[in-house]
């Protein structure tokens, strides 16, 4: 049997540069399209690199309304073999606990892959809960901040991955199956290919799972299965910018900038060197 990989992705509104309505304090969401959560593309790319080396199959899984098929199409365009859409009205309104529960049960139903990848976090909630929770539900080892898969040995049942930490790398040998969260912005996702898009349209490599297939207790999924309560949402007040523009050559600009930052008390001189003042 060949290497089985699965990547969890999320279809999120592209809020990378969304604005707030200054009058109402709410997000201006009109016409904002959804995209595959950028961090999840790191996970997809990481999985595809393993496939480049070892072969096997990469599938993606997402719990979302049917419009997320467009996101599955995108990653299939990158070379992912097939997609699984987990969708049901009863899954709506889920927090991370209910989401990870549904995902883990769907993955179990599909058969545990050797490697299960996730992105580090999503742009619409940034909890970073899902990979850890799925690992927990499935009782699998979990490694995060991974920027490289060094070795996969299916016969002996282990993989060696590299974790990218703030100041060092760490190599971890992990038993298969394992859950791996890709380090944020650690990959450059490969371009969508025409031939892969044509494969998507020709073969429709897409599977849909509803709660009819999973048979989960409605009390454990969706809004009912979600203990999280968002009590309040507030926004950071906009910090007024001083907006000074310096025109001149780069060396002069650097000197000018340092001088300005020192005047503001952001840089301080210690032992003949400039340091950022620690508050």
């Amino acid at each position: 049997m060949s290497l089985e990989m699965m990547v969890g992705i999320k279809w999120v509104p592209n809020t990378q540069n969304v604005r707030f309505d200054p009058k109402t304090g709410t997000l201006i969401r009109e016409g904002v399209p959804s995209i595959v959560n950028p961090a999840d593309l790191d996970a997809v790319e990481l999985a595809l690199k393993v496939k480049d080396t070892y072969g096997g199959r990469v599938r993606v899984i997402t719990m979302a309304p049917p419009s997320a098929v467009k996101g599955i199409e995108h990653v299939i365009g990158m070379g992912v073999d097939a997609g699984v859409l987990v969708t049901d009205r009863v899954f709506a309104g889920a927090d991370t606990l209910a989401t990870s529960y549904v995902l883990s049960q769907a993955i179990k139903k599909l058969g545990l892959p050797d490697l299960l990848f996730f992105g580090q976090e999503t742009i619409d909630s940034s909890t970073a809960h899902i990979p850890a929770q799925v690992a927990s539900w499935l009782d699998l080892p979990y490694v995060y901040y991974v920027d490289r898969v060094e070795e996969v040995n299916r016969e002996e049942g282990y993989a060696v991955v590299r974790r990218k930490l703030e100041d060092r790398y760490e190599w971890v040998r992990v038993e298969l199956p394992a859950v791996i969260a890709a380090a944020l912005k650690s990959q450059v996702p490969r371009p969508v290919r025409l031939s892969e898009k044509l494969r998507f349209h020709r073969d429709k490599p897409l599977q849909t799972l509803t709660n009819k297939d999973l048979g989960l207790d409605p009390r454990c999924v969706g809004l009912r299965g979600s203990p999280t309560i968002v009590a309040k949402v507030t926004w950071m007040p906009e910090v007024p910018r001083k907006r000074q523009v310096f025109k001149g050559d780069a060396r002069e600009a650097a000197r000018w900038l340092v001088k300005k930052l020192a005047e503001e008390g952001i840089l301080v001189r210690e032992d003949g060197r400039w340091r950022v003042r620690v508050a």
Binding site: N14, Q16, N17, R19, V32, P33, I35, K185, V188
Partner: peptide, 11 residues
């Protein structure tokens, strides 16, 4: 430009 929606490529 902030009014627009972008999905900027890394390359």
């Amino acid at each position: 430009l902030q009014r627009n929606v972008y999905d900027v490529d890394q390359r």
